[in-house]
Amino acid sequence: MTIQFKDESFRGDFSYANSPSNIPRFPFPFPEDEYMYSTNIEPHHAARAGSPFENAFDVDEHYVAEMKDRALVLAEDPGRCQALPHMETAGWDFVELVMVSKARDYPDLFKLTIDGDRWHWINKPLQIDDTFTFGDSSTLPCHPMEYIGRQVQGDHAILDQRDGNLWLDAGIITAQADWSLDFDVGMNFFEWHAPVPLAHELGVFQRALKFLLTLPQGQPSRRLNWTLTVNPRLDTSPENYPKWGPDRMTVTPENIGEKVHLRVELQTFWRLPRSNAILFPIRTYLMAMNEVVTQPKWARRIHRVMRDLRPELVEYKGLSRYHPILVEWLSQFDDGAPTSPGIFPD
């Protein structure tokens, strides 16, 4: 398999776009015509060749550009990467999981040679060739979580497990949908989820926590989450709200197809072996509405989902300003025909 990595931007001129061949592999988040919260967790098994669920850590055409964008964010704001002192072992677990997985799943792009504690890692797309001592952070240029976090798409939070709860004690978060690591670091599961509407009353977080506390090693899980973002901007952080908040004023019926992006998070959950922590990758996929509607099933369904979305969710996801014109625009692609079950295009 050869991936043609794109040279593109997630800021400024926003040259990010999906190649036509990349569109059908988008993790469309709506299995039905109606959307409501659910814990919707399933085993993160290899599924469907070519889909983003095929490998442990999906690598796609945006890899190199996303890693460049991460470096820009970290240069401006080092606080986006934080690890409390007890999270170093978990950082090494993260290094191992990513390197072993990527070397196994993409042998033409990544190579890992293990000789006892001496590890040799080659990352061809990013032109990295490093040798280090596993477990000895002085042999890396930075904290192990930051080292590997700069080489894997998606944000990564690491949750320490103790006292029957999970604690957000480390993370490298540069592509977030409006939440702040700097604000949340050290919080427990209920604290960092406190702003989410409706779900607490439904008991979603109680069930999700119970599930995660007993997440077994070697049996990762996944779920999809979604929101909408104006412009293909990865860094929609509270810290940078002045940069992206006003974008929502720029949406018009004429430009909505290219401006508004469906933003999907492929969230996975991994029990880490040496730290007993949980690695929580939040991998973001962006797709312009113009690209979404190239798939007739998705076009019909996203219209129905957006039209019937509960007002609390419209508000929470920050869609209020352009939600009516989006529904109106999408309606032209919905002929009322039934849609097939599941998320994959017909």
């Binding site: 409390l84 002192p85 007890h86 999270m87 072992t89 320490d160 497990q161 103790r162 007993t214 077994p216 090693q217 070697g218 049996q219 072996p273 730290s275 007993n276």
Partner: peptide, 13 residues
């Protein structure tokens, strides 16, 4: 045997 499960881990703090 099953994979290891830890319900009695050290508090690394």
């Amino acid at each position: 045997i099953s994979a290891p499960v830890n319900l009695f881990s050290l508090d690394l703090r």
